[in-house]
Design a protein around this nucleic acid. Structure first.
Lengths: 138, 138
DNA sequence: TTGCAGATTGACGCGAACGTAAAGGGAAGC
DNA sequence: GCTTCCCTTTACGTTCGCGTCAATCTGCAA
């Protein structure tokens, strides 16, 4: 996982050379968000692109980090949640007590996510069932 | 599913007789939300409890409906989404064109939910992996 | 040189989903 | 009768996650 946040593979099947840096609107287009959104995440401390003068320059690691943020968002994390998780991944001084606390937090997250998945599955099943009864009526 | 919205089974293993009506704080306690939240949902047209005088009285169907609303919320639906889905379930006049539109909407929802589940699974897998590396360090 | 496209910061705005008083009604128990 | 709860409505406040100007700067091409 940590590797994912350090770099990311170019889009498969794309023979065009993968650039090593991106502008804010490059990323905005790629991930279908606005530049405003990306700047907002930076303001919230979620991402820290380099600068060339005043202009932001995103590395592939930044790009992967953004992808991670957006996926977190898509599963219902708040931006505060995401920041906390990114901090967990960051290799801190790693005292033993810290590690155990981090482990506990991670496990809580997992439990919550699994509960959410159960809710998701149930909802999907219901909707699928509903679709079947609709098809019957046609 | 429609049946779920009409009634709901009492909590399994509970020998106490299942009441047929509830106050707002009964439901608030049971589902761990505030009365304010439930009243808010009523204001948004998501639920319509009976009244005894000015006091709200929730039937078991209302209770099931609330549960459905909260599960919808937990999977990331907005209240507007939930209202729309509840309306879909409501047995409308059912013209053929309506049915097909409803079916299309439902399928779109399912596709979105499945994408969300994939994101969830990936996130869970990552966190689980992270936990394993933490355990190694202990 | 003069645009023009795309980048920047700053500030205010906004919808969603409630929270939080404030002020009062109504039944129950002492 | 008085207090104590629990319920009610009304209404303004708050947080999150951006949207939307506005003013400015910076290259690059015509």
């Amino acid at each position: 996982m940590a590797a994912v946040l350090l770099d990311d593979a170019p889009a498969s099947g794309t023979p065009t050379a993968a650039p090593h840096s991106f502008t804010i609107s490059d990323l905005a287009r790629e991930f279908d968000v606005t530049p405003r959104t990306i700047r907002f995440y930076e303001g919230e401390g979620l991402i820290r692109p380099a600068r060339r003068g005043s202009q932001r320059l995103y590395s592939r690691a930044d790009r992967a980090r953004l992808a991670w943020i957006l996926r977190g968002r898509s599963v219902g994390f708040t931006l505060a949640d995401i920041r906390e998780l990114l901090d967990l991944y960051a290799p801190g001084p790693a005292r033993r007590g810290q590690l155990k606390a981090t482990l506990a937090k991670s496990r809580d997250r997992i439990a919550a996510l699994e509960a959410q998945r159960d809710a998701l599955d149930a909802t999907i099943a219901e909707l699928a069932d509903f679709c079947r009864t609709l098809e019957q009526k046609l």
